[in-house]
Design a protein around this nucleic acid. Sequence first.
DNA 1: TGCTTCGATGATAGCGCTATCTCTGATGAG
DNA 2: CTCATCAGAGATAGCGCTATCATCGAAGCA
Lengths: 349, 349
Amino acid sequence: MRPRSSRRSRAGNTIADVAREAGVSLMTVSRVMNGKANVREETRERVEAAIKALNYSPSAAARNLAAASEVRIGLLYSNPSAGYLNEFLVGSLDQASRANVQLVVQLCENKEDRAEIVRRLIDGGVDGLILPPPLCDADDIHQLLQEAEVPAVVVASGRPPVFLSSVNIDDRAAAAAMTLHLVKLGHKRIGFISGNPDQTASALRLYGYLDALGEAGQVSDPALVVEGLFTYRSGLDAAQQLLALEERPTAIFASNDDMAAAVVSVAHRMGLDVPGDLTVVGFDDAPQATTTWPELTTIRQPIADMSRAAVIQLVEDIRTSRDGRRLAPRHAQMTFELIQRESDAAPAA
Amino acid sequence: MRPRSSRRSRAGNTIADVAREAGVSLMTVSRVMNGKANVREETRERVEAAIKALNYSPSAAARNLAAASEVRIGLLYSNPSAGYLNEFLVGSLDQASRANVQLVVQLCENKEDRAEIVRRLIDGGVDGLILPPPLCDADDIHQLLQEAEVPAVVVASGRPPVFLSSVNIDDRAAAAAMTLHLVKLGHKRIGFISGNPDQTASALRLYGYLDALGEAGQVSDPALVVEGLFTYRSGLDAAQQLLALEERPTAIFASNDDMAAAVVSVAHRMGLDVPGDLTVVGFDDAPQATTTWPELTTIRQPIADMSRAAVIQLVEDIRTSRDGRRLAPRHAQMTFELIQRESDAAPAA
DNA sequence: TGCTTCGATGATAGCGCTATCTCTGATGAG
DNA sequence: CTCATCAGAGATAGCGCTATCATCGAAGCA
């Protein structure tokens, strides 16, 4: 009787092939692949050569199964600006495939069925959740996660709950840096369009603006601060309000690029040149920032890096809690960058 | 000696638990889950009850491994507009997780290392590739795939290679529909900004525009057709060119929304009202279309559906070729939709 | 020199599931 | 009444990998 036909389907080689090629045991190959310590340098090199020679790549399924470490994480998003989500997805996907974890991307639009969706994800076997803005500030979700003892990482929240890990930039310092930049250009009347009050980062950016003004010894005229919602439309309204002011600002700092683009649009329709008559700056370095004219000076958040970091942190949290160890949420802070493009200039004399 | 500690980590139950609960064998449970035939109705119900009772959900890893049906597909993207990629990703991710296949998302920016990247993906064990625009038209990649006999699906290409499956909308018909819409509004001089000549869809959209003009019995003035590159910046140039014309067009149809937004911007800076003095329409229904003022009338492509369809088609192709059957590429066509917003109107009297 | 100690490596047993074969009655043809 | 046939169900052997324990020299030490 001939051996029953193999059930293999992957064209690729298996770890056994590599072991044979290198003249070592399976385990040694496994150790090399996982970067374990106890392998002699010479052996390691031999195995690596064999891996390269056979063009071997391990089966994620088998790995997960054997290591009993199948990790599935959910990425819950609502409707942030498209560019943000895009970059966020790319980063987390990349990291997820690197870390060999399955990423479940779930849309969650209305507030009503949030709880339902989260519960279903958890019941469905997700081991942890990533919450990009604006869901990063959804208290009801936090609550749910704490009760279910499901680890999660909130990203770009201004006020992350203590029991969840978080990844942020220092919104306050970033807004202060941008404001200071405007002050240094010589602007005395700097308008500010704040973000959606539902998102905690909004307040931080406002504080940053105020910090810088204070530091520069400028008084902050309350009329120069207008509330927006992070949407283009709200930016339109806010810009109209600011530019209708008797003593018009010479610069406007919008809390995100969508609103900044709206400001530019309004300025143009009023016949104002940007940046000749009005400096406009944004925040986020969204695609908007470069698909508008003039291109926007803005604050760059390393979104992809942040989402990557979130995945790493979450996987760590999940493994911790699986081992029965106590979860110790960590709060990471990434660095921002002020990107100067063409929408800012010194005020007209 | 007590049994070595279990390596299980999943909190969830295994198929064995379900089998015990239902009082049947493992295989019977497996059969029920996979909807196989030979199971008595009564038994099936008992098993289903047990599954529900234990809140059982199978391990994807184990399934893949056992069925030897691990499928990994690569999504190769370069830098399309952010909104497009975003929607594309969401659709394909969703379908990938549904179909239990692993999605590898890979950036491929410069033309030089394309071949290298594709080769690495293939060697790395990807079973098939999805090519959204603009890579859908990369002949060198097609070549490579054909040689390596790797299935792939090109999305939104104007001229898909016969040996690869494709998913499209009818760009020509869509452009014709939009042009006809403008004609019906009463426009006699309709400017057209074509897309990047490297992308085959560009020509189709141009033909559609010409088709409709012909059908409406209008002559097409060559001066009214300007070449763009699908970028905002190229739209700026094209708009300037069109609006500098002695006999100015009363409407401009841009081949995508980025360029349409640029047209609006130029029009505003020239003091023209949109749509009062100039109608501007786009194509794609990108996020741009609604984060600009006025919101753009455009053609909606069902991008997410298209990417979902691409994944489905690709998985089918992969299984076909694994079974050793001959690959029979299929070309699917999805339906578009003309979305009327606020950027179009009848020409001024 | 004899014996512990330890680092490098090998052997083996699963991880949770499905493919495949085997078994068991019930059924119907002859 | 016997025997092939067949549907429903069980038993068993992996899928490709890693955890765990066993092994085996070489070094360290008294």
